[in-house]
Design a protein around this nucleic acid. Structure first.
Lengths: 223, 223
DNA sequence: GTCTATATATGGATAGAC
DNA sequence: GTCTATCCATATATAGAC
């Protein structure tokens, strides 16, 4: 009887926790940490307010759980920038990947942006450690491509900042993008046009040599 | 007597209002609208809390006053993109101008970013009207340069989004930039390196023809 | 015109019934 | 394990003394 209750309880638990996390991400994205209320999160999750505290203890703990989910997403994205690949493919894929997340998970991007905007009180350690190390690795990859003559000498870390800025803009500043484009909702075509523009800016802006041009650059380096 | 009192009162009034506005911009930037408290704004302005309400009525009215100040700043920046100028100069100046504001008025940028991030409840009208019209004008200028062969065909509106995103990133995501660069404080040199990277990305990314190359492009168009 | 002291509302958190 | 009812801290706003 206890086991059955526990089994059923765990199932309800997992389901309710997931519902709360989804609702919380949306509410934190819309209103920020202080603007979000446990009542509004509960209402969106269609659960009584006390359940929020039952499952996550405090509003702060729930917020940290939402952030942890988002970091999992963010960590994977930089994988595209791999030294074994062609810079054009790697950078193009990374940009389109980030735009995919801006389109499909705008709330995740907004919660992250809000956290950074207000001084990263929860993520300070993550930025200074995991993220910094990861960016340093990817900067080394970009420097390698520069040395091999596959792209112009561009400051790799500032380039990465620009990649983040341009792609996340479509999630974080979505209201402004919609207003300026005169759209009620951003379409897939809008995101594609944005991605194309960013890819061209970055590939031409970094002087990325593709195909025959890359081969010529390699040959020149050997001579 | 009444005049003297009024004169003195107006002077104190102007001074206190200005102090409150400066303090409010900083607190709204750090904490967002809901996170900011009238008490913390008053403390930063070194005035009693009740003065905030005496001068601005409500917290919301004070917030709108801060936003209005920021829009004055923002409106001027796009002036650099003028049809009578060379695209390289215009785009370069615009980028360096925006970076200047990110460096010297990061709080203004953060308050604006926070407002947009959370759906622009106050600025929705401004975005759909003034800003949209202004972007449309500047997009026409960029299209003109494209037609004259001075730069590659690039979607002008998405290009403007990227310009905003890359430059404002250094104010809005300053904590992340600092953490990744391993700085306690961003130096003028850091901002200069960022600006140089963005200028190169944009000028080369848009295939902006300068000097002799521009003359060749013009000659080709005539032939 | 300035500021202290307070009214009122909201929201985070919890006790205790079911 | 779930939820109603309630406590208490915080924050906006104001009344009224100076």
């Amino acid at each position: 009887m206890a086991n059955q209750a526990a089994g059923k309880g765990n199932s309800i638990r997992a389901c309710n926790q997931a519902r709360i996390l989804v609702a919380a991400e949306a509410v934190f994205a819309e209103a920020g940490f202080h603007g979000a209320t446990t009542a509004s999160i509960a209402a969106r999750a269609r659960l009584p307010k006390a359940n929020i505290h039952y499952y996550f203890g405090t509003k702060g703990a729930l917020y940290r759980a939402v952030l942890a989910n988002i970091l999992d997403l963010w960590l994977g994205a930089l994988d595209a920038i791999d030294v074994s690949r062609q810079p054009a493919d790697a950078l193009g894929d990374y940009i389109r990947d980030k735009m995919y997340w801006s389109r499909t998970r705008p709330n995740a991007s907004k919660v992250f942006a809000n956290e950074i905007l207000h001084g990263a009180p929860q993520l300070g350690g993550y930025l200074a450690n995991e993220l910094r190390r990861r960016v340093d690795q990817k900067a080394a990859v970009l420097r390698h491509w520069v040395r091999r003559g596959l792209m112009d000498p561009v400051d790799p870390v500032h380039l990465i900042f620009s990649l983040w800025a341009m792609t996340q803009h479509y999630a974080d500043f979505e209201v402004q993008v919609r207003a300026v484009l005169g759209r009620k909702r951003l379409s897939d075509a809008d995101f594609a046009a944005g991605a194309d523009t960013i890819v061209k800016l970055v590939l031409d802006g970094c002087g990325v040599r593709q195909g025959r041009a890359a081969a010529v650059a390699r040959a020149r380096l050997k001579a």
